[in-house]
Design a protein around this nucleic acid. Structure first.
Lengths: 147, 147
DNA sequence: TTTGCTGCAAATAGTTTGCAGAGAC
DNA sequence: GTCTCTGCAAACTATTTGCAGCAAA
C-alpha cells in the first residue's frame, strides 16, 4: 500500500491544480481517503469525521468523494447490495479479496492478472481499458475463529 | 451459452421442487432470465414483459428475480452507478467483458482464471468461494465505427 | 472581494413492504 | 378451499439538488 502521507499530498496537489479550495472538511475527507483503511463507505467516512467535526454533513462527504473520484484519485467499488466503498490509497484498478463474514477487503498482488487481461483482449478483440476483479471468501481470522 | 430451453426447464423444475407456484408472470420472467440476452436489468425485463402482459408490475419482476437469485439460478451483476443486471443463462460466477460505449456484455472463456484463483488463495490464505471478474473496454464494433 | 463551499432540507431514484383480491394446485 | 402470488400504493434507503450564509484565496 502507498504511504498515506504521500497519497494525501498528491490528492491535495491535484485539488489545487484544479482550482478547488482547500477547506478543513475537504482535508479531513482526503485524509481518510488517502489511507482508506478497510475501503470505507461514504457512511463510514462520515461516521469517522463526525467525531472530530460535529457539524460535518453527509452531503459534504458525498460531494467531495464524488469530486475526487472524478479527478481519478479514488477508486469506487460498488456492490449489488447497493453499498459503495472507496479506495483513495490505490486509485487505479486492482484486484480485491473480500471476506464475506467480516467484510474486510484486502489487496493481493497477482502476477497472473496481466496474463489474464491479455487473454481477454485476444479472445474478444476488445480494447481493454480497465477491470474489476474481486474474489470473495472467508479470511483466515473468520475461518479460524468461533464464527 | 447454455440452451435457453434447458435453462428455462431447469429453473422451472427448481421452482416446483421448492413448492413455488408456477404463474404466467413467473414463467414469463423465467423465460427472459433463461435467455438473458445482453444481461438485462430489472427495468429491461419489465419493459419486455409489459408488451405481452400489460398488467405486469415492476414489483413482481423484482420479487421473482430476487427469489430466483436466492435459489442460485440467476447471477446478479451490480455496477457502481446502481444498475443491477442479471444472467440466468449462466448463474455461476464467470468473467464478463463489457463495452463502455454500447454496454454490451459478453462472456469470454478464460483458461487463466483458474490459475489466478489459486494464486489468490495461496497469497491471501482466504478460502475463496466465488469471484467477480469484469473487464471494461471498447468492442470491435464500437471501435471500428464512427464513435 | 469574489467565487466556490458547506449544511440544511427537500427532491429524487431504485427497491421493498403491506394489504386486499386473484389464482395455482 | 387453502395458501401463495400479484398489483397497487406507500414506505424506505441511498444519493442528489436548491438555496442561503460562510469562508478560502
Amino acid at each position: 500500500m502507498a504511504d498515506p502521507k504521500d497519497r494525501y499530498n498528491s490528492i491535495i496537489a491535484k485539488l489545487r491544480k484544479n482550482s478547488y479550495k482547500i477547506t478543513p472538511q475537504r482535508m479531513a475527507i482526503v485524509e481518510i481517503l488517502a489511507n482508506s483503511q478497510g475501503h470505507p463507505s461514504v457512511e463510514k467516512i462520515y461516521d469517522q469525521l463526525k467525531k472530530r467535526y460535529p457539524t460535518m454533513s453527509l452531503t459534504t462527504v458525498y460531494r467531495n468523494v464524488m469530486m475526487i473520484k472524478e479527478l481519478g484519485e479514488v477508486l469506487e467499488l460498488g456492490f449489488p447490495d447497493g453499498s459503495n466503498r472507496y479506495d483513495g490509497n490505490r486509485p487505479f484498478p486492482h484486484p480485491h479479496v473480500i471476506c464475506v463474514k467480516c467484510n474486510k477487503i484486502i489487496d493481493p498482488d497477482l502476477s497472473n492478472l496481466r496474463d489474464l487481461t491479455e487473454e481477454v483482449a485476444q479472445e474478444t478483440d476488445f480494447e481493454i481499458i480497465t477491470h474489476r476483479v474481486d474474489f470473495f471468501g472467508i479470511c483466515p481470522t473468520c475461518r479460524g475463529g468461533s464464527g
